[in-house]
């Protein structure tokens, strides 16, 4: 359990109501010991996602936030109660996935504070932690290396085959990938939660559709002199040892392919 988990579990035990600010990374809102809303700097907010679907604008939502709140949002009718619940549910789980592992900042608790979109869905803290762990395991099953989560997404320029099927999110990722944006940045551009984008990118990696990551070429310096040159670096005994992540990724892919064969 990380420090933030422990702190949250404590707040849940005391049935606290308020907002827990985690540095600049995000805020967790609790009511009566249960999490009602969560925002994270890395993931798009529920307001942003609703606006991205073209149902309403962020300005209109800010106005509602100041006057009328959730009741008025539902009464005016761009979303149904079920959709709003589902939106908050997805948004909170998405934020939790990125926010709960954050460490190094001293969280500050402000009692009594509520979020205007809170109160749609109530999460118990252990359930939230369990779901995040399940999602992490799911990502690892698709593609074991977490490198692709933080590096720019670079789809191959040519398909190494004749055809491929892409899911909807994968399509959006491939269309938007500019070889500079990382998966969370792409999620904000597309207007989707970050987790589905991570899933899509890992599936692309597993299908071998992403270019290998750029890594500093460490061999260049030593390969300058032939091995029989007296000035060359001494050759290590035994097979060459590499801790190169590309080799690791290759091994993982081989392992996955062999598992699929059996």
């Amino acid at each position: 359990m990380s420090k933030l988990d422990t702190l949250l579990a404590g707040l849940a035990r005391e049935r606290s109501t308020g907002a827990l600010q985690v540095g600049r990374s995000g805020t967790i809102f609790l009511a009566d010991g249960r999490v009602t809303y969560m925002e994270c700097a890395q993931t798009p907010s529920v307001e942003r996602l609703l606006a991205a679907r073209g149902l309403t604008t962020e300005t209109a939502l800010r106005r509602l936030r100041a006057d009328g709140g959730c009741e008025r949002l539902l009464a005016e009718g761009p979303v149904t109660p079920g959709e709003l619940q589902y939106a908050v549910l997805g948004g909170v789980l998405d934020a939790a996935f990125f926010l709960l592992p954050v460490s190094g900042t001293r969280p500050k608790f402000r009692p009594g504070e509520r979020h205007w979109l809170g109160g749609q869905w109530f999460f118990d803290v252990p359930g939230l932690v369990r779901e995040c762990a399940r999602r992490r395991a799911q990502l690892a099953r698709i593609w074991p290396s977490a490198d692709v989560d933080t590096l720019p997404v670079r789809p191959l320029a040519r398909l190494p085959g004749h055809g491929v099927t892409l899911s909807r999110v994968q399509w959006e990722v491939v269309v938007r990938a500019d070889h500079k944006a990382t998966p969370p940045e792409l999620a904000k551009q597309i207007g989707r939660p970050a987790y589905p984008v991570l899933v899509a990118v890992r599936r692309l990696a597993a299908s071998g559709l992403l270019a290998a990551p750029d890594l500093p070429n460490r061999r260049a310096a030593t390969a300058a002199r032939p091995p029989h040159d007296p000035g060359a670096a001494a050759q290590p005994l035994g097979p060459p040892v590499t801790g190169d992540p590309t080799d690791l990724a290759l091994l993982m892919r081989l392992k996955k392919a062999l598992e699929e064969l059996s």
Partner: peptide, 8 residues
């Protein structure tokens, strides 16, 4: 299909 994420 939902407006937000989806599908449910």
């Amino acid at each position: 299909e939902t407006v937000f994420e989806g599908p449910l």
